[in-house]
């Protein structure tokens, strides 16, 4: 699997992502620059977490208009996989590659703690190493993770199986109380229609090593490795 990680000014979790990808693939991912207009041949493009352009204007809004995003669109249009985590998820929604938007957390405070997610479907390139309904632990680190979309859009993405993960409690129960940031229907991550693009707020890349307190995040990367062998 050939993977590249896009670095925008203010990106700060590119190393975490590189550690996770390297751990699973044994290959160091390429670092891509926001001004790049062409991408090398890649199986996976990752938009990592951080505060691209300082999160000034709106989170991800300026990054979504970076030169590299045309290349990312082209990559996606030809079936290439795209993963956006945290700020990367925000960028993908701002670029309208994913539905919905992310607002300030309902509690208006930054959230940095472990939470549980439920896997909503396991038949995708991102989730095949899980089983549907699996529950895993994952670190949160965001101030703007409150997922919203209008009711029609929410219904549509539910119907079309575009919800990837939901926030839940340790037993897998999903309710408004199990959403840490106010996200509609406790949605933590969504696919595009092709399910080759995934965006999620939490950080599975920070839980891939027993040394970091667990390996709950590994299946995401194992899934990609299995699906995108080239």
């Amino acid at each position: 699997m050939r993977a590249g990680i896009v670095v925008f000014p203010g990106t700060n979790r590119e190393r975490d992502m590189a550690i996770a990808l390297h751990r699973v693939t044994g290959i160091r991912p390429m670092m891509l620059w926001h001004r790049d207009t062409k991408l090398p041949k890649l199986d996976l493009v990752v938009l990592p977490g951080g505060f691209s352009h300082g999160d000034y204007l709106r989170c991800g809004a300026m990054a979504a208009h970076s030169p590299v995003m045309s290349a990312v669109r082209a990559h996606a249009a030809t079936g290439g996989a795209v993963l956006g985590v945290c700020n990367g998820f925000q960028i993908l929604t701002e670029a309208q590659l994913l539905p919905g938007a992310l607002l300030r957390n309902a509690g208006l405070r930054f959230l940095s703690q472990d939470w549980h997610l439920r896997v909503e479907r396991a038949d995708t390139i991102f989730t095949s190493a899980w089983r549907q309904g699996d529950i895993f632990r994952v670190p949160l680190a965001h101030g703007d993770g409150n997922y919203i979309a209008d009711a029609d859009t929410l219904d549509r993405i539910e119907d079309e199986g575009q919800v990837a993960f939901r926030y839940c409690d340790a037993e897998g129960r999903v309710s408004p109380e199990t959403s840490p940031n106010g996200s509609a229907r406790s949605i933590a991550g969504v696919f595009d229609r092709s399910r080759r693009i995934l965006g999620l707020m939490p950080h599975p890349e920070d839980l891939v090593d027993p040394l970091m307190g667990g390996t709950d995040g590994l299946p995401l990367f194992k899934s990609l490795l299995e699906s995108l062998v080239s």
Partner: peptide, 19 residues
Amino acid sequence: RAWVWNQYDSTVGGRTVRR
């Protein structure tokens, strides 16, 4: 102190072994 720590990103960088 969880109320305080939960507002600080303690994992970014992928180096944190004990939070």
